[in-house]
Amino acid sequence: MSHAEVWVVAAAAVFGIGLYSLLIAAHLLRQLIAIKVMGSAIFLVLVVAAGPIDGALDGLPKALVLTGIVIAISAIAFALALLVRLAEVTGSTSLEDDADDDR
């Protein structure tokens, strides 16, 4: 296995764990962490797939990922504000329907 393949396989596993957790976690905070982790996995694939690892030639995907890291924290910060507001208004930390809601 080459270096690139090791990173791609690890990133794929991390992505799968993230999606699994996103689907089973009931707490919105945990779901946000899952989204962040999935994003990190995709960043890893993006940089590794772009080119040589030792020569460090291709700066373009790295710059894109640097942009992505900042966009990710912007989105997370806004989502956390919404989550705190949701908890303030409804007292709940989940988007699940109530148990007595028969649907």
Partner: peptide, 25 residues
């Protein structure tokens, strides 16, 4: 199931991209 399948999908896309693009885009 969804997690495992998505993981396989990302791995296939990533490995294909590693082979397709080669050194330095």
């Amino acid at each position: 199931g969804v997690g495992v399948l998505s993981s396989v999908l990302v791995a296939m896309i990533g490995l294909a991209a590693v082979e397709a693009i080669g050194p330095g885009g």
